[in-house]
């Protein structure tokens, strides 16, 4: 069954992914295992195929769509069964001046699948908008994507603005995007994830230090 779920994502078959998810829910199956061993394993495979140069953006996005279709079924069911144990709140977006949406959307999907409450602000998001949404949301993490070398400095502007929000527990900053590096993140005082899958583990590490009561 997990193999089928994995395949539905790898082949970008959203209808099949949804059906399989519905099957797990109605059959009283293990929802988290379905996510981790099934659908998320599929999206990891899609990521591998992308890095190999076998898959390109259309396949990547279709895989993410299939994942999303499954999650749309599984998440409400998870909430019902477990009264929602959120790992933390994330506001995510691509920085101002940058229209690249795909990587960010994939990270948002995976974070959501990984148990975070995610607000996706879309692309071309201003520094102020990030801060405003994070404040209102009580976000643990602001996750920002920059795909252009010309828009990377906006991540620094966000890093500098966070301490000025006047919060006793300010959100942590997570940065990513093709031109970003660990040294860039270190310099601006942010956490960094080299790809969408790593982003989940890094986000878990960030909230693990001080989990929301």
């Amino acid at each position: 069954m997990y193999t089928e779920m994995r395949e539905a994502v790898v082949l970008g078959d959203a209808a099949r992914a949804r059906r399989l998810a519905e099957g797990v829910v109605s059959g009283g199956g293990d929802l988290l295992a379905a996510i981790e061993k099934g659908f998320a394993a599929g999206i990891r495979k899609v990521g591998d195929l992308w890095e190999e140069g076998e898959y390109f953006l259309p396949e990547l996005v279709q895989g993410a769509e299939a994942m999303k279709a499954a999650m749309a079924v599984l998440q409400p069911a998870l909430r019902e069964r477990h009264a929602e144990t959120s790992k933390g709140r994330v506001v995510i977006g691509t920085v101002q001046g940058d229209l690249h949406d795909i990587g960010k959307t994939l990270v948002a999907t995976l974070l959501s699948a990984g148990g975070f409450e995610v607000e996706d602000l879309g692309s071309d998001v201003s520094v102020d908008r990030f801060l405003e949404r994070a404040k209102e949301n009580g976000a643990d993490i602001i996750a920002t994507s920059a795909l252009l070398t010309t828009t990377m400095p906006v991540q620094k502007a966000i890093a500098e603005a966070i301490p000025k929000m006047g919060l006793s527990r300010p959100p942590r900053l997570l940065v990513g995007g093709a031109p970003t590096t660990s040294s860039w993140a270190k310099e601006i005082g942010a956490a960094w994830a080299e790809n969408a899958l790593r982003a989940v583990a890094v986000a878990e590490g960030l909230v693990g230090a001080g989990r929301r009561p």
């Binding site: 190999e52 076998e54 390109f56 953006l57």
Partner: peptide, 11 residues
């Protein structure tokens, strides 16, 4: 530049 040659991001 991919392992299999040069491709656009759309493939």
């Amino acid at each position: 530049r991919k392992k299999r040659g040069f491709f656009t991001i759309m493939g």
